[in-house]
Amino acid sequence: MLGPQGKRDEDFPWWLVILVFTSLWLFWEVLSRDYYTAVLQTLAKGIGVTVAVAVIAYLGACLIGLGLAVMSLSRHLILRQIARLYIEVMRGVPIIVLLLYVAFALAPALVAGVNALAGEEVWRPRDFPLIARAVIALMLAYSAFLAEIFRAGLQAVPVGQIEAAQALGLSGWQRFRHITLPQAFRLILPPLGNDFVAMVKDSSLVSVLGVADITQLAKVTAAGNFRYFETYNVAALLYLMMTIGLSLLLRRVEARMRSR
Rank of each mutant, 00 (worst) to 15 (best):
N233H: 04
M257T: 03
K7Q: 15
L140Q: 09
F226D: 00
D195P: 01
T221Y: 04
L31T: 14
R227N: 07
I136F: 09
G169W: 10
A69S: 14
V20C: 15
L66W: 14
F150K: 11
L117T: 07
Y232I: 03
V157T: 02
A222N: 00
G169I: 04
T22Y: 12
F185C: 08
A222G: 03
A103V: 01
Y239V: 10
A52P: 05
I47S: 00
K45L: 00
V102R: 06
G65T: 06
L249K: 09
V30Q: 14
L154C: 09
E10T: 13
P191Y: 12
W25Q: 07
L85F: 01
G65K: 06
V111P: 13
P4K: 02
I136K: 01
D11S: 14
Q155L: 14
L170F: 15
A164P: 13
F27P: 10
C62R: 05
F185R: 13
Q41V: 02
A105L: 10
F229K: 05
A44K: 00
R251L: 11
D195S: 06
V51E: 03
M242R: 01
R256A: 02
A107Q: 03
P125E: 05
V114W: 13
G193E: 00
I162M: 09
P129A: 11
G48Q: 04
I47H: 00
L181G: 05
P190N: 09
L40Q: 08
L68N: 11
F128Y: 15
A118K: 01
Y35D: 15
V20G: 15
G169H: 12
Y36N: 14
P129W: 15
V206P: 02
I87Y: 06
G119M: 01
L110N: 10
P94W: 06
L59V: 13
L2N: 07
I214C: 07
M242Q: 03
H178Y: 15
G65Y: 08
I96A: 10
L138E: 06
R251D: 12
E29I: 07
W123H: 00
L248T: 10
A103G: 09
E230S: 10
E163P: 11
A103F: 03
I96R: 04
R124A: 02
T221H: 06
L187D: 05
I244C: 12
L110P: 12
L26G: 13
M199Y: 00
Q166P: 04
I82L: 15
R252H: 03
I188D: 07
A132N: 14
S72A: 13
R175S: 13
A44V: 02
G65C: 07
M241V: 15
N194M: 01
F21Y: 11
L217M: 13
T231M: 08
L24V: 12
Q161G: 13
Q161K: 12
G245R: 08
V159W: 02
T243S: 11
E121C: 01
M71P: 07
V208I: 11
L98H: 11
I179H: 07
F196I: 02
L100H: 09
I149S: 03
R8V: 12
L240K: 04
V93G: 10
F12S: 10
W28Y: 15
